[in-house]
Amino acid sequence: MAGINVPIGPAIVEYGEGVDMVTFDITKGGIVFTTTNSKQDVTVDQYGDTVVKSIYKGGTAQVTVPFALYDLEKLSKVTPNSTYVTGSGGKEKLEVRASAGLNLLDTAKKLVIKPTDPSATANDWITIPIAGAIVDHNYAYDSDNERITPVTFVAYPDIDDDGLLFIMGDETATAV
């Protein structure tokens, strides 16, 4: 008897491409992909508050990655206005400036969510062609909780690809 294949399990996130790619592969709490769509409901006097049609106004997408490692080099790739510094003897630091006005679109990169299930294929991936990153550090120093860095990636429309916001499945698939 065939069962129902409902996918569950963790994933990794690849951000950037080539030598600039950083992989977020240790998480705590699950990677979350969220989309939100907005519409304008249209009413006319003759039908009171009854909606006579709705117009799609646009959508947003974002990915939240609860990164579970204290890896300053990786965090530097997603922390705006930051500089990663290494010194002798294995010393390192991440300096974060309070400079306002950084356009996150200028630092945006490709993002791919890949489930770690051994049977997962590219058909299971989610790709955001242009994703901007922002980090809200919030560490609890206690014996009961892991220190998690929530990294949020915001999708921006790819103007060169007719406003493509995200792809669910194999991005290389083409119509036959």
Rank of each mutant, 00 (worst) to 15 (best):
M1L: 06
A2V: 12
G3W: 01
P10C: 02
P10T: 11
I12T: 15
G16R: 10
G18L: 10
G18Y: 05
F24S: 08
D25V: 05
D25Q: 07
T27N: 13
I31S: 07
F33G: 11
T35S: 14
T35P: 09
N37C: 00
S38G: 12
S38P: 01
K39S: 15
D41M: 05
V44R: 06
D45G: 15
Y47R: 06
G48L: 11
V51H: 08
K53W: 01
S54T: 15
G59C: 10
G59V: 01
V63H: 10
V63M: 11
T64R: 12
P66E: 04
A68V: 06
A68Y: 04
L69P: 01
Y70S: 09
D71P: 06
E73K: 15
E73F: 02
L75Q: 05
L75M: 11
K77W: 00
P80W: 05
S82P: 10
T83K: 15
Y84R: 02
Y84C: 03
V85S: 08
V85T: 14
T86N: 00
T86Y: 00
T86D: 01
G87A: 08
G87D: 05
G90R: 00
K93Y: 04
L94G: 07
L94M: 03
V96N: 01
A98Q: 10
A100P: 03
G101Y: 06
L105H: 02
D106L: 12
T107P: 01
A108E: 07
K109D: 02
V112H: 02
V112R: 04
V112A: 02
I113N: 07
K114L: 06
P115Q: 04
D117N: 15
A120Q: 13
A120N: 13
A122M: 12
D124G: 08
W125S: 07
I126S: 10
T127M: 04
I130A: 06
I130P: 06
A131R: 02
G132M: 06
D136V: 10
Y139A: 10
Y139E: 12
Y139I: 13
A140P: 00
D144V: 08
N145K: 15
E146Q: 09
R147G: 14
R147V: 10
P150V: 01
F153I: 09
V154N: 14
V154M: 13
A155R: 08
A155D: 09
P157N: 07
D158H: 04
D158N: 14
D160M: 07
D162M: 04
G163H: 05
L165R: 02
E171M: 10
T172F: 11
A173Y: 10
A175P: 04
V176P: 14
